[in-house]
Amino acid sequence: MIKKEDISLILADDHPMLLKGLYDELSVNNYNVVGQANNGMQALELVLKLKPTIALLDIDMPLLTGFEVVKMAKEKGTSTKFIILSYHKEIDYITKAKTLQLNGYLLKEDSFFEIERCIEAVLDDEIYFSNSFDNLAIENASEELKRLKLLTPSEVTILKLIVQGMTNTELSDNLGVSVRTVEKHRSNIVNKLEIEGGTNAVINWALKHKDVIIDF
């Protein structure tokens, strides 16, 4: 069992009171908090410089979001484990967390006991979602991610370009394929993602889930 004092942590939240409260609670309970940040860029710099065991990050921060910090740090090959602390319970945020393979996702309403349980689970290489989450929301997020994984690389590329507002003709020119091929890809996307609706169904779905699509 790893001793608490041997677990290095950094904290990031742009709300000073919340940041201080979390720091005080962790420190009183003998955790080794090695850095604090009040914006995403500072959090990223601390992760890369200090290489903490765990980083606890808010999502909505200036300069970089918590999700962007995770993505950029992982691209740099960090071994730090990431736990998100947020008010967001929406399915898109859960799906995004799963897409980025976050180690933990807690809600700011959770007790410190829940935070400790999450830290322990993450250290054991488990994925931990707050017990405050609706199990159905987590299951739906998992199903949504499974459907996205059914897409071919070409279909994923088209979905990402649709998010940018490209028409079929623009997609055809950009990818060097015929409009007919683009239409076939879009039809496959509709079927695999089980998208319902009219002509703009794919566009509407893509825009609604753009944050997940961009990092997929």
Rank of each mutant, 00 (worst) to 15 (best):
N174H: 14
Q101E: 15
P16E: 03
D173N: 11
S86C: 11
S142G: 14
V202G: 01
L150V: 12
I91C: 09
A206G: 04
K74A: 11
N188W: 05
L106M: 12
S132E: 06
T167V: 05
Y87V: 15
R186D: 01
K210E: 00
I54A: 02
T53Y: 06
S86E: 02
L9A: 03
S178W: 06
E126N: 11
M166P: 03
A43K: 04
E5C: 03
K3R: 15
T167R: 03
E183T: 15
Y93W: 10
D60H: 10
E25C: 11
I84V: 14
T157R: 14
G176F: 02
T181W: 13
M72H: 04
R117C: 05
T167P: 03
L44Q: 07
T181H: 07
I203T: 14
M72A: 13
V163D: 01
F67K: 01
L161I: 03
E183H: 09
A37C: 11
F112G: 13
H185G: 03
H15Y: 14
N32G: 13
I94V: 15
I94Q: 05
F133Q: 11
L63S: 09
L56N: 03
P52S: 13
D60E: 08
T80Y: 06
L48P: 09
Y105M: 02
E75C: 12
I162H: 00
E155L: 01
D92K: 09
N30I: 02
L207Y: 08
V34S: 01
S79P: 06
E183M: 14
S111N: 12
S142P: 07
N32F: 12
S130Y: 10
S178F: 07
N29C: 04
N168W: 10
M166K: 06
Q101G: 15
N191D: 13
K49C: 08
G104P: 08
N135V: 12
M72V: 06
L136S: 07
F216T: 15
D125I: 02
K149I: 02
N191V: 05
L136I: 15
T167I: 01
E120P: 14
K51A: 09
P153Y: 06
C118V: 08
N29T: 11
T65W: 09
A43F: 13
E139Q: 13
S8I: 00
L48A: 08
N168G: 11
